[in-house]
Nucleic acid binder design. Structure first.
Length: 911
RNA sequence: GGGCGGUUAGCUCAGUUGGUUAGAGCGUCUCGCUUACACCGAGAAGGCCGCAGGUUCGAGUCCUGCACUGCCCACCA
């Protein structure tokens, strides 16, 4: 059956077909609780209503590459996909949709709103899964989860209740970050600080019942409406006399005490600070120390509430203007100064955060953070790049309790019930809706309206996806997961929480409590101008669009080739174009090979049955005959070298190195040299090949090619799958190349002698080509070449055995091997092994040739001088490793030889 | 305010523990549609490895300072 491939590789239909095949054939499905020796990973769950962006593309590509590599290498490999309900993000999206219809969620009511979000999820959810399927990600779709599935919700309740029982969950009134637009508390991590030039206002507070006043400095004058004190430093001489007196709060008239507190910094502003316990975390602490009342002056939307008196109803920024205006009018605004400061903004919506005194649920982190810290420092968890170990540990060491309640509607409801019985107020925390208050027995219970922070459920995933709290075979088999691949942007949000919660809940797990043993943190994908991709900047590159243009394999390869740990990726489409060309190169190599193999099968010279590659091990089982021609021994050796390096690179997440090695092997060695050489044995379309020579060529060609496809497969799964099946006429030894064995280097197959010989021939051919180009020899014209070397030189033998090869690749009509040195004025090329020249009626520019030689000579001279200086240095001889000294000596000798040759050539030119 | 990274060819980036000649892709220039591939082939040009010191027999690689640049963390009004 002829392999009738189109001339150019068209990825679209081919990729779609294999993507479908992998899913429908369940190629990547792992049966439950299969084995203990496994490689398992959890996909960082994207937002259920999200779209694939470049960051996902990188993250997923890297995981897929590793999963495919490990799977082909023989590990039972499980990669679990899923999506996150993304409480706040999803709720915001649906609210935006409602707003477009002129509605809001409060009109709808909670129940209807949540139902609406589920509708939205059913409608728009699944886009990202479709995209992932289209990308052929080797996840186990049988195990796909959604964080609000009933089983996972049950696990969330269980986890929360257990933490509560252990005293690690508490409810309390503290200053939290409040987003007035989202109308919910958010954690410290969800707050971003932005440097701005603000104003520092100095305001005079008159003292009560006497002359005098005190001037306070503030960046937020409107909060004075909630002031309950003025603080000065106890050691501040300036204010010694006013401590303990009362000041009259302007605009309000309330009398507030002047207190002494260490927190007031004499160096800053006026040294006197207004104290607003309800709206500033520091002021709150002062309030606690001095038993100050706290007056909340805002409502949920950060408008002034009735406590703000005349200002009630005003937005906080309007109120600021009005307050300043009124102070000015009363002559109490002393100064306004520019002041560099950082404003806290909501990570989601960029609204300025309001620190607010409010009742929330918290998780006590001390003990869990300690344990997480220990897991990292003790090496139970290993970070790559290792800088993240320190970042992780620093964070763990400086952690505040985690505010886990959110005043949102979409999310996991907090499993707590408030007793409404008169005077009880008890809160019952329970796994299921309780019938009665556990304290007073009243049946009048109301469920807590807050939901949990998204990251609470996400933090449990490494064990909940395997069935926790039940004891399941999966949990035994796959927990801890082997590796987590993620971006540093969710290191604290997610990675840190998984470690804390995993270590806590899985502490008695026989295989260890940490959720994963390895963490690989990858770079951020930026646009070609190094800008962070963001929707607001409008520079987001849609990976699907890029894929449609270049093919998935090319995009994956681009990301892999640019993914060196530690450096952000400035995605450049020109590279992707280059890797599309690489795919095309592979495609055409396949066409060439099939063309020959098909002909050989027709002529009965060769059949697939002779192909030992049709085993799980493939090229690893191929024993190259000792009598095989140089090029065969060479390419097999090079293949094994490449596969060794590729395996090493993958093991250390050096994707770019793996990509680069495969690329160079396939294109520069296999295509540019091996295929070109092997053509001589295959015979042209008209020629009749030497049957025996051809059979050997087919065997080697196919084995190496098939092996290269396996090597490349994790990086370019689609094109390799397509061609791999074509090799076997649709009857491959496994259902997918992804299930074939990954090439493992066999050092027995390294052939240093063949590589050395081949290098000599390559140098010779390159030198002749260079001479031809310089002399302007017509491409079709064959010219004789003369090679000069010492008689009996080893290279003579190589040359004689491989004459045909040189003649063909260098378009040489005849080769004369001449013992001795060359003479005459023709330009020539020299290596340490030989000199070569071509015989041709030349139009060469002798002046240019002289310049070239002079330049080269000068370069060599500099190098040789450096070398001599080193070799004359006794310290160097004494301290440098013998191999380095030896290498330098050899190089110096070689340079002397080459320089001598160059000088002679110059002399001849000068004659 | 603390901490971390980057600076190598026109562009985008490699360069593993310091060791002889710093690499690749794209782009540029010169040839060539050679029967796998013009998404190709052959050849070539192009680099005081940010600046200044230091350690060392030896520095793109280690140390210090500086400059530019990016990021993370942070409760001083």
């Amino acid at each position: 059956m002829p392999h009738d491939l189109p001339k150019a590789y068209e990825p679209g239909a081919i990729e779609a077909r294999w993507a479908e095949y992998w899913v429908s054939e369940k190629i990547f499905t792992v049966p439950s609780g299969a084995a203990k020796a496994a490689f398992s990973m959890l996909l960082p769950p994207p937002n259920v209503t999200g779209n694939l962006h470049m960051g996902h593309m990188l993250n997923h590509s890297e995981m897929d590459i590793l999963a495919r590599w490990r799977r082909m290498s023989g590990d039972l490999t499980l990669w679990v996909p899923g999506t996150d309900h993304a409480s706040i993000a999803t709720q915001m999206m649906v609210e935006r949709q409602l707003a477009a219809e002129g509605k809001n969620r409060r009109e709808l009511g909670r129940e209807a709103f949540v139902e609406r979000v589920w509708q939205w999820k059913r409608h728009y959810g699944g886009v990202i899964q479709q995209q992932m399927k289209r990308l052929g990600e080797s996840v186990d779709w049988q195990r796909e989860y959604f964080t609000m599935d009933e089983s996972l919700s049950r696990a969330v309740r269980e986890a929360f209740v257990r933490l509560h029982e252990e005293g690690l969950v508490y409810r309390g009134k503290y200053i939290v970050n409040w987003c007035p637009r989202c109308t919910t508390a958010i954690s410290d991590l969800e707050v971003k600080h932005e440097e701005i030039t603000g104003k520092l206002y100095e305001i005079r507070y008159p003292l009560s019942g006497a002359e005098g006043s005190i001037v306070v400095a503030t960046t937020r004058p409107e909060t004075m409406l909630g002031d309950t004190a003025v603080a000065v430093n106890p050691n501040d001489e300036r204010y010694r006399d006013v401590i303990g007196r009362m000041a009259v709060l302007p605009l309000v008239g309330r009398e507030i005490p002047v207190i002494a507190d260490e927190w007031a910094n004499p160096e800053f502003g006026t040294g006197a600070v207004k104290v607003t316990p309800a709206h500033d975390a520091n002021d709150f602490q002062i309030g606690v120390r001095h038993q100050l009342p706290s007056i909340d002056i805002f409502d949920d939307n950060a408008r002034m509430n009735p406590n703000a008196g005349a200002y009630a109803g005003l937005d906080r920024f309007k109120a600021r203007e009005k307050v300043l205006e009124d102070l000015e009018a009363q002559g109490l605004l002393v100064a306004v100064k520019d002041h560099p400061m950082a404003v806290a903004k909501c990570d989601r919506c960029a609204t300025v955060i309001e620190p607010r005194f409010s009742t929330q649920w918290f998780v006590k982190v001390d003990s869990m953070a300690q344990r997480a810290l220990q897991a990292s420092s003790g090496g139970e968890i290993h970070f790559t790049p290792d800088i993240y170990k320190k970042i992780f540990e620093d964070w763990m060491a400086n952690l505040h309790d985690w505010c886990v309640s959110r005043q949102l509607w979409w999310g996991h409801p907090i499993p707590a019930w408030h007793c409404a019985a008169l005077g009880c107020e008890h809160i019952t925390v329970a796994r299921a809706t309780p019938a009665a208050c556990e304290k007073c027995g009243s049946g009048d219970l109301h469920q807590e309206t807050d939901v949990l922070d998204t990251w609470f459920s996400a933090g449990l995933l490494p064990f909940t996806v395997f069935g926790w709290p039940d004891h399941t075979p999966d949990l035994d088999a796959f927990y801890p997961t082997s590796l987590l691949v993620t971006g540093f942007d969710i290191l604290f949000f997610w990675v840190a929480r998984m470690v804390m919660l995993g270590c806590h809940f899985m502490q008695d797990h026989p295989q260890g409590s940490v959720p994963f043993r390895e963490v690989y943190i990858h770079a951020l994908v930026r646009d070609a101008e190094r800008q962070k991709m963001s929707k607001t900047k409008g520079n987001v590159l849609d990976p699907i669009a890029v894929i449609e243009k270049y093919g998935t394999d090319a995009v994956r390869f681009t990301l892999a080739a640019m993914a060196s740990p530690g450096t952000d990726i400035a995605f450049s489409e020109s590279r992707t174009g280059g890797y599309r060309a690489f795919a095309n190169k592979i495609w055409n190599a396949a066409r060439f090979i099939f063309m020959n193999v098909d002909r050989a099968q027709q002529e009965g010279v060769w059949s697939l049955a002779d192909f030992a590659g049709a085993t799980r091990n493939g090229i690893a089982d191929y024993q190259i005959p000792a009598t095989a021609p140089l090029e065969d021994r060479w390419i097999v050796s090079r293949f094994h070298r490449a596969s060794q390096k590729v395996n090493e690179a993958f093991a250390e997440y050096r994707f770019h190195e793996a990509a680069q090695i495969i690329y160079a092997f396939f294109w520069n060695e296999f295509c540019d040299w091996y295929i070109e050489i092997v053509k001589l044995r295959l015979g042209g379309p008209d020629g009749t090949p030497d049957r025996q020579a051809a059979a050997g060529a087919y065997a080697c060609l196919l084995h190496v090619f098939e092996g290269a496809l396996r090597l490349l497969s994790p990086l370019m799964p689609f094109i390799t799958e397509e061609i791999w099946h074509a090799i076997y006429d649709g009857q491959p030894p496994q259902k997918s190349v992804a299930l074939a064995a990954y090439p493992r280097a066999n050092s027995q197959q390294f052939d240093a002698a063949a590589e050395e010989e081949m290098r000599g021939l390559q140098e010779l051919i390159e030198n002749i080509r260079n001479l031809r180009a310089e002399a302007g020899v017509e491409p079709r014209e064959q010219v004789p070449a003369e090679i000069f070397a010492a008689p009996g030189h080893g290279f003579q033998q190589t040359l004689e055995t491989n004459q045909l090869l040189v003649r063909k690749l260098a378009a040489v009509s005849a080769i004369n091997f001449l013992p001795g040195a060359l003479s005459g004025t023709e330009s020539s090329r020299s290596t340490s092994q030989f000199d070569v020249r071509i015989i041709f009626e030349r139009k060469v520019d002798l002046g240019a040739e002289r310049d070239r030689l002079t330049k080269e000579l000068k370069k060599m001279e500099v190098e040789l001088n450096n070398g001599h200086r080193q070799l004359a240095n006794e310290q160097f001889l004494a301290k440098a490793p013998a191999a380095v000294v030896e290498g330098l000596r050899n190089r110096a000798a070689e340079l002397e030889l080459l320089m001598e040759k160059a000088r002679q050539a110059l002399q001849r030119l000068g004659e």
